[in-house]
Amino acid sequence: MSSQGRVTAWRVGIAVVVLGAWEGGVAAGAIDPFFLSRPSAITARVAAWIMSGTLWPHLWVTLEEALLGLAIGGVLGIAAGFALARAPLAARVLDPYIAMLNAVPRVVLAPLFLLWFGLDIWSKIALAVTLVFFVMFFNTLQGVRDADRALVNNVRMLGASERQLVRHVLMPSALTWILSSLQSSLGLAMVGAVVGEYLGATHGLGYMIAQAEGTFDTTGVFAGMTILSIVVVVTSAGVSRVERRLLRWKH
């Protein structure tokens, strides 16, 4: 068997064992489904949401928030990272402030954003931006600073101006760092969107989970979590493909 085949077999095996034990435990009376629900019920609930169409508007809102948060946070983070990497003095001056801002727990910000931006999508996007920004910022900063001195000197000797240096060396060098953080940034953007919805919203996966929790509907909570994880896995695979394409010179 190929190694990929063996990996897939193991993955499926683990899922079967865990879900089987869970379902069996409930059937045998060892697990109380009121607290933990059961895989068959969760699957049925997900299917029902899909069939009835109630899922789509919520899923769409969450994705919209996460992707806009990722885009805005990404652009701001990359721009700020580049600016400070090229201005070492400003970077040193601002360093403690950046550390302070990054230390703020985002959950604490969520109610403030609700107050400032209202119940609709912009408060969630703001939350996602605060999470994505710092990851992108630090990676860009590091990527530019980390650019190989020999590469920089060589391109300068070949006649590059400051702008050409950025374009031909610093940008591509930072890109590898930025892309490697894209995966975790995407996850964080989803977290930002869902936490925001959870604390106050009229739509979204976080809202669905909060509603279910409000009525002690554990099956609904697990169904929401299941959909969330599937969405992240699928979008991550997409990001990986983009990454491989842009970094094809590495292989």
Binding site: L151, N153, N154, M157, V169, W249
Partner: peptide
Amino acid sequence: RRATYMFQQETLLPWK
């Protein structure tokens, strides 16, 4: 600007 410089390290841009 009258000189080129061949360094000891690898200096080819890996992404080109």
